[in-house]
Design a protein around this nucleic acid. Structure first.
Lengths: 223, 223
DNA sequence: CTTTTTTTTCACGAAATTTACATATTCTTC
DNA sequence: GAAGAATATGTAAATTTCGTGAAAAAAAAG
């Protein structure tokens, strides 16, 4: 999970990097608002932004405003003085949390976790097609009311297909979204998992359509 | 649904009002403990009280004591310093949640929702499934009418599972809700406690289902 | 302060899952 | 309908994840 740390003080960036990397997060740094915007554009998959308010060139508020035009990212604000907090509330920018300097690294880590947990907790729907039912909350799949057991990869694959219903996905795409950007294995691994997922899907095995020379797609006949 | 916000700082009251009304809640305000008691007497149908600890005239802690004599309302406490939590916990007043200042409006809203959801799920004082019985008030668990002894962590875990029946919970989620958001230990600690809880649950050990590569869920077959 | 209970860490083995790869099958093109 | 290319399938080895017990650490009780 990527975190973008925006602060003009290198010491602050280093401290957060050290602690966050120990927790398994990937850190990207920026020194000011402008650089923050650039980094977000290059790394649209950052999960959280930690942003100082007072910075040269472009301050934290303004940078957030710009960044939110691209996408509404979760943000934790850093600031030196308490009064700035009141301003923040007034601005109603949609800041997720706020930490005053000086802070303990432990506190920042706790807040990072808290914000990410809250943001990630928004799955609630159930996907249905005929007698196929995917319950995201329960992490379960039912066919004809009977729960079928999927391995983690099968489940992730299926969810990814459903999220991109009707769209052909290349093996590379599937590898990078389901397996992760750091997977260095064989393309054909996908085929094996498709095979297993199809078997698990039983009478719905044909929802996964082979797109020759490209990859696969999930397609229902509902129109 | 009515929420009573008790804080001497108008800014805080305004912020909470603004966010809560956007979510469809009705807000009543009070500036101190005495006023809070008055407002509760006038509006006995409030669904939740958000209360600051440090206030002039009558502090939040004492106000709660008085209010609970009327009725046990769900309460979220606000406080400026962390040490104040410990006091709260020590006094075991039955606070549902607490938030440290400075807080993010979103965090408070998330907690409001969580507390209300939990309270609504607990209309009954006792959770029952077949011969499993959890008495929230008494903090006790019975199987076949026999009380079983759970350690505090086992009990908290079980209650958390029941509150989220059917939902797959990651180890991180369990750690942050049962252990607290500032727990910095090993993920696998959860496994050990699951093991112990399962052993304690005897014939109901299978109600706790492992969700491979994710965590665990509490699942009954009742439909 | 000592004893007891509870919590946490950790490492091992078992079980489930993932991967690679060999072979079979299907599809496309001519 | 044959050749070549791409996909499907079966198998077994490699890896990951989980359950468990034991011991260390921490907290609570005496």
């Amino acid at each position: 999970m990527k975190i973008l740390v925006v602060d003009d003080e290198q010491l602050i960036r280093n401290v957060i990097r050290e602690y966050a990397e120990a927790e398994g997060y990937k850190i990207i740094e920026a020194q000011d608002g402008h650089e923050a915007i650039e980094k977000v554009e290059k790394n649209p998959d950052v999960a959280l932004i930690i942003m100082d308010i007072m910075m040269p060139r472009l301050d934290g508020y303004s940078a957030c405003k710009e960044i939110f035009k691209i996408k509404k990212y979760p943000v934790i604000m850093l600031s030196a003085r308490k009064e700035e907090y009141d301003k923040l509330l007034g601005f109603d920018l949609g800041i997720d949390d706020y930490v005053t300097k000086p802070f303990s690294p432990k506190e920042v880590m706790a807040r990072i976790k808290a914000v990410l947990a809250r943001v990630n907790n928004r799955k609630e729907e159930i996907y249905r097609y005929e007698d196929l039912e995917v319950n995201y909350k329960a992490h379960s799949v039912k066919i004809d009311g009977e729960e079928i057991k999927l391995t983690p990869k099968e489940y992730e694959l299926l969810v990814n297909f459903i999220d991109n219903e009707g769209m052909a996905l290349s093996r590379e795409q599937l590898l990078s979204t389901v397996w992760g950007y750091d997977f260095f294995g064989d393309d054909r691994t996908v085929d094996t998992h498709i095979k297993m997922l199809r078997n698990s899907l039983g009478k719905y095995r044909d929802l996964i359509v082979t797109v020759r020379s490209l990859g696969y797609k999930f397609e229902t006949n509902k129109e």
